[in-house]
């Protein structure tokens, strides 16, 4: 951590760019949808990163928070026709409560066992939400006619949530909490010897992390108008992808997960659309495969992720350019 200005000019620039983006270009609804998904993944990746990358608690069950947030918007609507928009209030809070309850169980575990514990917890929720039809309508899911046809309002909402998530991380990492998170990540024993109550601060980290994941979940229901347990509690498509977004961008960096989210969505759409129609159709089935390869590559060669190892990347590119120039 350093003492450079809390928010740099380029960061303000990025935010303003994201804010005016829809006014500059006349995007098709397809592109608008992609932008929204990028932001959604910024939130999930950044929130996972706070708990895993900064606090060292590698959660494999982030879908639990996303899912519970989505159902916090969905269940009151399903049962009582309460507007899903209340989810933006309840989603985060419900996820925090779940996080606290889960913490009682999973924070007794360390390292890979923590990972498995969170994974198991999220899976149990997925199964339970599929079974308890009286509450969740089971596998039929909950359907709601979305408020607006235009995607732009949703873009601004998820942009605000994403900004909130990143800002949370930035603020926290300059405070006692942030230093304690990092200490716990680096060495829990050393941390306790300097007076850090590790379980308290793990809970705080989990609370902040789950809040934003829950908000993302609530937003998802409001925006998509449909949820079912297999989608919002998905092990692979939510929990694992949250991790991979963080890894590719760079764990323990502020902007890593955001970059990871952009890379992930871009890659996915490039392949899914078979390079926007320029490549043969069969390529479209390869998006997850290529993403998996990218993950392997990053873990092997860029363990700090694109942001964390940016200097390394620059150096490599630079050297290459130099040697090419010599030729």
């Amino acid at each position: 951590m350093h003492n450079d200005k809390f928010i740099s000019k380029s960061e303000i620039g990025i935010f303003i760019f994201a804010l005016v983006l829809p006014f500059i270009f006349d995007f098709s609804p397809y592109i608008q949808g992609l932008l929204i998904f990028v932001m959604l993944w910024v939130v999930l990746g950044t929130s996972w990163n706070l708990l895993a990358g900064y606090t060292g608690q590698v959660s494999f069950g982030h879908a639990a928070f996303f899912g519970i947030g989505a159902y916090a918007a969905g269940v009151p609507f399903f049962l009582f026709k309460v507007s899903p928009w209340w989810g933006l209030l309840f989603g985060g809070i419900t996820a925090v409560i779940l996080g606290y309850l889960l913490g009682i169980v999973v924070f007794r575990l360390r390292g890979p066992y923590f990972a498995l514990g969170t994974l198991a917890a999220a899976e149990i929720l997925r199964i339970a939400f599929g079974q308890e039809e009286w509450l969740t309508n089971g596998h039929n899911g909950i359907l709601y006619i979305t408020t607006w046809v235009s995607k732009y309002p949703y873009y601004f909402i998820i942009l605000a949530i994403a900004a909130g998530t990143i800002l949370t991380v930035k603020v926290v990492m300059r405070r006692r909490e942030g230093y304690y998170f990092l200490s716990i990540r680096e060495d829990e024993d050393a941390a306790s010897a300097i007076g850090i109550n590790a379980s308290k601060y793990k809970n705080i980290s989990m609370g902040l992390s789950s809040f934003w994941a829950g908000m993302a979940g609530a937003f998802y229901f409001i925006y998509m108008g449909f949820i079912d347990p297999e989608t919002v509690f998905a092990l692979h498509n939510i929990s694992i992808i949250s991790i991979l977004v963080g890894i590719i961008g760079g764990v323990g960096t502020i902007w890593g997960p955001a970059i990871g989210a952009i890379i992930m969505v871009l890659l996915q759409e490039t392949f899914r659309s078979a390079f926007f129609g320029f490549a043969p159709q069969w390529v479209s089935g390869m998006h997850a495969f290529v993403f998996g390869l990218l993950v392997i590559f990053v873990i092997l060669y860029l363990p700090g992720g694109v942001v964390g190892d940016w200097d390394l990347i620059k150096k490599k590119l630079h050297l290459k350019r130099k040697s090419e120039m010599k030729k």
Partner: peptide, 8 residues
């Protein structure tokens, strides 16, 4: 995490 990538 690598095994996750491999599995995927």
């Amino acid at each position: 995490l690598m095994t996750v990538g491999i599995g995927m």
